[in-house]
Design a protein around this nucleic acid. Structure first.
Length: 107
DNA sequence: ACAGTGACTACAT
DNA sequence: AATGTAGCCACTG
């Protein structure tokens, strides 16, 4: 797949460890700021692509782990984030505003 | 080719 | 402040 999905995957793979980004930010970076849903759908396919995509670093604009149920893996999405230094309580990323990584700004 | 769908957001009640 | 509704666009059957 070399289209929208791949673009999303590439950006997500660029997210630095210990930081997170949002669907909207990625969508905007791709040019279609209103395709945030597509980003989510792309992530849904991310488990079957190579190399793997750190989908756990992508949350909604509130820093909420909305996709934790779709996440496939032995460890929970929250556990993975915590292991990278991101504090997560419940489904909410703590200090989300500080660790938010915006591809538009950072690139 | 058409309609349904979704890991989202923004606006309106 | 908290729900509800409505755009949004690429992908799939």
């Amino acid at each position: 797949m070399n289209d929208f999905y791949s673009q999303v995957f590439d950006i997500v793979r660029m997210v630095p460890k210990g930081r997170v980004t949002t669907y909207g930010a990625i969508a905007k970076a791709l040019g279609s700021g209103k395709s945030s849903r597509l980003v989510g759908i792309a992530m849904n396919h991310s488990h079957q692509v190579e190399p793997p995509v750190p989908a756990h670093r992508v949350v909604n604009r509130n820093g909420l782990l909305t996709g934790k149920h779709h996440f496939i893996g032995a460890l929970s999405m929250q556990q993975l984030l915590d292991a990278e230094g991101v504090m997560v309580i419940g489904d909410q990323v703590q200090d989300f505003r500080s660790i938010m990584w915006d591809p538009m700004v950072e690139l």
